[in-house]
Amino acid sequence: HEITLHINGRRVKLRFRDEKAAEILKEAAKKGLDEEELKKLAEELWR
């Protein structure tokens, strides 16, 4: 699955395995994680 989040006016595509991962990524984006941090988090969730 993929999700596209808008971060600092940019579109960031993240891959994720399940809905739980999608929710975690959305929450992290709301908390203000930047693009690099979100990509790292997405990679961690993928494993």
Rank of each mutant, 00 (worst) to 15 (best):
E44R: 08
R15A: 04
W46A: 03
T4L: 09
E27K: 09
K40M: 13
A21N: 08
R10K: 15
T4G: 03
R15D: 03
F16M: 06
L41F: 07
K40H: 12
D34L: 10
A28N: 06
H1D: 10
G9C: 06
G9V: 01
I3S: 01
G9T: 02
L45R: 01
K20N: 11
K39T: 14
R10Y: 03
K40C: 07
E19S: 11
R11G: 14
T4R: 04
A22L: 14
L33F: 13
L33Y: 13
G9Y: 00
E19F: 09
A42E: 06
E36H: 14
H1L: 11
K30C: 15
D18T: 12
N8M: 04
I24G: 03
A29W: 13
H6A: 08
E36T: 14
E44I: 10
W46N: 04
V12Q: 02
K39R: 13
A29F: 11
I3Q: 02
V12L: 08
F16C: 09
K20D: 10
D34C: 09
A28K: 06
K40N: 11
E19W: 10
E36I: 10
T4K: 03
D18F: 04
E35F: 11
R47Q: 15
E23D: 11
D34Q: 14
K30Q: 14
F16I: 15
L41V: 05
E27I: 09
D18C: 03
N8P: 02
E44A: 09
L25W: 06
K31T: 12
E43Y: 06
L41W: 04
R15I: 08
D34K: 09
W46D: 04
L38R: 00
R10P: 00
I7S: 05
F16N: 03
A42N: 04
F16K: 03
I7G: 02
R11A: 15
L5E: 00
A28R: 05
L38C: 04
K13Y: 04
A22R: 15
I3H: 02
F16D: 01
R47A: 15
L14Q: 00
L25S: 00
E37I: 07
A22C: 13
I7P: 03
R11I: 15
R17T: 09
E35T: 09
A29L: 09
L45C: 02
F16S: 09
L5T: 01
L38D: 00
G9N: 05
I24V: 11
L41A: 02
E23I: 13
A21F: 05
E19P: 12
L41T: 02
E23K: 08
L33Q: 07
D18H: 05
K26V: 12
R47S: 13
H1V: 10
W46V: 03
V12I: 13
V12P: 00
K31L: 12
A21M: 07
W46K: 01
I7A: 06
L25Y: 03
E27P: 00
E35W: 12
E19I: 08
K13R: 12
L5G: 00
F16Q: 02
W46Q: 03
I24Q: 10
I3M: 15
K31E: 14
R11F: 15
E2L: 10
R17A: 12
E2W: 15
A42M: 05
L41N: 00
E2R: 04
K39G: 07
N8K: 08
E44T: 08
E36N: 11
E27L: 09
H6I: 15
I24M: 10
N8H: 06
E23V: 11
D18P: 01
G9E: 04
L33H: 08
E23F: 06
G32P: 04
L25P: 00
E36K: 11
I3P: 00
L38F: 03
K20L: 12
E35Y: 11
E37Y: 10
V12S: 01
A22K: 15
V12W: 01
E36R: 11
I3L: 15
H6G: 05
A29K: 03
R10Q: 11
E37R: 10
E35H: 09
T4A: 06
K20Q: 12
